[in-house]
């Protein structure tokens, strides 16, 4: 598919997500709001990054040294939309929801997609290693909270959201653990020739994570 077609597809998906019935359906449940709609919006930004890669202004590519400003923008953006008050406002006020619909693709997904390739492998590992436990911790907080954190969601929805976040954290943690230790896909390490002296398979060299973590620079 050519680039214009891809951009059109992203815009179309964005508009469909904005359609009122779908918006209300996805935002009617806390877990769906947090783990379906929000990631989809970030995903659209990632796709946008893939589509415009190489076409970004030269000064921006240069100023985004090692992807640091970009990834910090991502950290702020995701932190903002993890505030229970922000979720409430997005449900209550269509204008606030519009801010969410613009900021998640453009200020989270897009910089993530553009900066990720500029980040050193250890920097990427740092982000993963921070993000995954944080997700689980927030899930645990939702389960432990005796009161409702959002005025628009029931306590049982809050608990479901908590469990969903924990399940996602465990799944991502497992995948990332395998990727970090064995390589991804897992056959990667097994495909190496066995070492002659011990017969054991050598792991990948320290800190040089296998693809997709290896730097493309």
């Amino acid at each position: 598919m050519n680039n214009n077609g891809r951009l059109l597809l992203i815009a179309g998906a964005w508009l469909i997500l904005w359609l009122r019935p779908l918006r209300i359906a996805l935002e009617g449940d806390m877990a769906v709001h947090m783990t379906v709609q929000v990631p989809l919006l970030i995903g659209l930004g990632l796709l946008l990054a893939v589509s415009i890669r190489g076409q970004e202004p030269h000064w921006l590519a240069e100023a985004d040294w090692l992807g640091i400003p970009g990834i910090i923008l991502v950290i702020f953006g995701t932190s903002f939309w993890m505030l229970p008050r922000a979720l409430d406002s997005a449900v209550a006020d269509p204008w606030f929801d519009a801010i969410k619909f613009l900021s998640l693709p453009l200020l989270v997904g897009l910089p993530l997609g553009l900066s990720w390739r500029r980040m050193p492998p250890l920097g990427r590992a740092f982000i993963w290693a921070n993000f995954i436990p944080k997700l689980g911790a927030i899930g645990g907080l939702y389960l432990a909270a005796p009161t409702r954190l959002c005025a628009y969601y029931r306590l049982d929805q809050q608990a479901t959201a908590g469990w969903t976040l924990i399940v996602i954290a465990v799944a991502l943690g497992t995948l990332w653990f395998i990727a970090a230790f064995v390589g991804w896909p897992p056959q990667h390490a097994a495909a190496r020739p066995p070492s002659r002296d011990t017969g054991s398979k050598p792991g990948p060299p320290l800190l040089a994570l296998p693809p997709p973590y290896a730097s493309s620079r």
Partner: peptide
């Protein structure tokens, strides 16, 4: 690189301001 520090300052300032506003 050139432009790194101004961009970083902009991102951090805007991020802190947004979080401070919402909280």
């Amino acid at each position: 690189t050139r432009g790194f520090l101004p961009l970083l300052a902009l991102v951090v300032t805007a991020g802190v301001a947004a979080l401070a506003w919402e909280t």
